[in-house]
Write a protein that binds this DNA or RNA. Structure first.
Length: 470
RNA sequence: GGCGCCGUAGCCAAGUGGUAAGGCAGGAGACUGCAAAUCUCUCAUUCGUCGGUUCGAUUCCGACCGGCGCCUCCA
């Protein structure tokens, strides 16, 4: 099996990757906090994870992926309190939306979507272990904190010098109860608001709720084991979230928490990070409204390497829409082709090799997509020669299919209802008659009226073909 | 202040110590009644700037300029 290379944020180098057991990749992906629909920036990361799991599958591995749904946290509680709702009533609709958006973008479902609120027992247990290990303490505010001083190697992932939180940095509000400003909450003492919206549970330290980082450690270890193969997330999670996950997990188990840390870069709009607070977010819903296909979005997201920032712009989106149109046309052409040539088979083989190499090379999707377009160009040229070799055609179809199985950038057919279809066929029949008597003015008039309904006609040696494009 | 990333054609974007993939847009041609689709050719002597190392640098080193991010909730 050829080497699969992946960038590991922990070592800051591209390393050969292979799952610990040689077969199944145990992967944990930080998921959404479900208080608001996820925006495209969030989805860039999820799409990166989707690409990773598909590339790993193509490489021959079984993937067992867990993505958490953070369904208790400050923002959710605030929303529930403001709307006088229970936490669950806030999160349920958002979770439904998240899955709908995920499906729209054709992101393959993970094997598990654990919710923090379903793992309270495991989390409490983890805190207990940490307390036993002497790295957790309950402060005067009744909250249980993790003492980062007791964990050697804290800051290894983010390389932040814990002693130097200096000028320029936005400084956290003083939290008097903590022994060290950077200690983080494992178990937060419940407030009346928490109780009111159902965000409080019993624990050995009194009523309370889990700290932000705790759920990931508890759920990852419960579902995937104490040492997982890959942990993914956005770059912004590197610190403090992932740093704290490492501290919690490793202080409890004494084992490495994740073998590989993989972080996806940001999606920018207008040159700055897409974020709610900046007010420059767009959502999957916006895309739907603009009738932008999932294929185009995927193409766009994969056109830049995942470790590089990507600026979302209308022009870039337009380019992807057009690029993906070409892929879709080719898909149809390949499906309806009646034969190939030796050169087609050669192009397919070259494509297969380059495509795989690109993905194995730290998920170089731009390079993989380039390979696809080179193949499409060669294949189109060969198909033009109208060869009749079925073996080479099959090879081309196979190579194309496996690439599409990873990229998934063939646009869906535009739906056409039956009545429209009947009308189109009638128009086309009339046009054929007009062309037959060389009445091109009439024929063009018909084509124009079809175009107004978003129907594009293409004349081929086998007669007219049509498709709905908008 | 600390840590880090980025700067390649009109736009998007790979890439390598040995002379610039791919996509979009553009130009010319083939095909077509005309189109569309497709094909062919074309489109950066040059990779932010200035130095250095080297036989040779876009690729390595340094400085500078410009942009972005993390250090706080955050994909």
């Amino acid at each position: 099996m050829p080497e699969f290379r992946l960038y590991n944020s922990m070592t800051r180098t591209v390393e050969p990757f292979t799952p610990a057991d040689g077969e199944t990749v145990r992967m944990y992906a930080c998921g959404p906090t479900v208080y608001n629909p996820a925006h495209l920036g969030n989805f860039r990361t999820f799409l990166f994870t989707d690409l990773l799991r598909r590339a790993l599958s193509l490489a021959g591995y079984t993937v067992k992926q867990v993505m958490n749904l953070t369904d208790v946290d400050d923002k959710i509680i605030k929303r529930a309190t403001d709307q006088k709702k229970m936490v669950r009533d806030v999160t349920e609709p958002v979770i439904d939306m998240f899955f709908a958006d995920r499906d729209y973008l054709r992101i393959q479902p993970a094997e598990h979507y654990p919710r923090a609120t379903d793992f309270i027992v495991e989390m409490v247990d983890l805190v207990r272990r940490l307390e036993k290990a002497g790295v957790a303490y309950q402060a005067d505010d009744k909250t249980v904190y993790f003492a980062i001083d007791k964990f050697a190697g804290y800051g290894r992932l983010s390389r932040l010098d814990t002693r130097e939180l200096k000028a320029g940095a936005r400084v956290a509000q003083d939290d008097y109860a903590k022994e060290n400003a950077q200690d983080f909450a494992l178990w937060k003492a419940a407030t009346p608001e928490d109780e009111a919206c159902g965000a409080a549970w019993d624990s050995p330290w009194g009523r309370g709720r889990p700290g932000w980082h705790l759920e990931c450690s508890a759920m990852a270890m419960s579902l995937l084991g104490e040492t997982i193969d890959i942990h993914t997330g956005g770059v912004d999670l590197q610190f403090p979230h992932h740093e704290d996950e490492i501290a919690q997990s490793e202080a409890a188990t004494g084992k490495p928490f994740a073998r590989f840390w993989c972080h996806g870069e940001f999606l920018l709009t207008d040159g700055t990070k897409m974020a709610k607070r900046v007010g420059n977010v767009s959502t999957v819903e916006d895309l739907r409204a603009q009738r932008v296909s999932a294929a185009a979005v995927r193409h766009l997201m994969f056109s830049t390497h995942y470790r590089k920032q990507l600026n979302l712009s209308g022009a870039a989106l337009e380019a992807s829409i057009e690029a993906v149109r070409r892929v879709g046309d080719f898909a149809e052409r390949l499906a309806s082709a009646t034969g190939g040539t030796a050169a087609l088979a050669e192009a397919a083989e070259a494509f297969r090799v380059e495509f795989d190499a690109a993905l194995r090379d730290d998920l170089n999707a731009p390079r993989a997509q380039a390979a696809l377009f080179i193949f499409i160009n060669h294949a189109n040229a060969e198909l033009d020669t109208r060869g009749s070799d079925m073996g080479s055609l099959a090879a081309a179809r196979e190579a194309f299919a496996r690439a599409v199985g990873v990229l998934d950038i063939v646009p869906e057919q535009q739906g056409v209802d039956a009545s429209l279809e009947v009308w189109v066929e009638q128009q086309l029949a009339a046009r054929k008659v007009a062309r037959g008597r060389r009445d091109f003015a009439a024929a063009d008039q018909i084509r124009k009226s079809l175009d107004e309904k978003g129907i594009v006609v293409e004349d081929t040696p086998q007669g007219a073909r049509w498709k709905k494009v908008r």
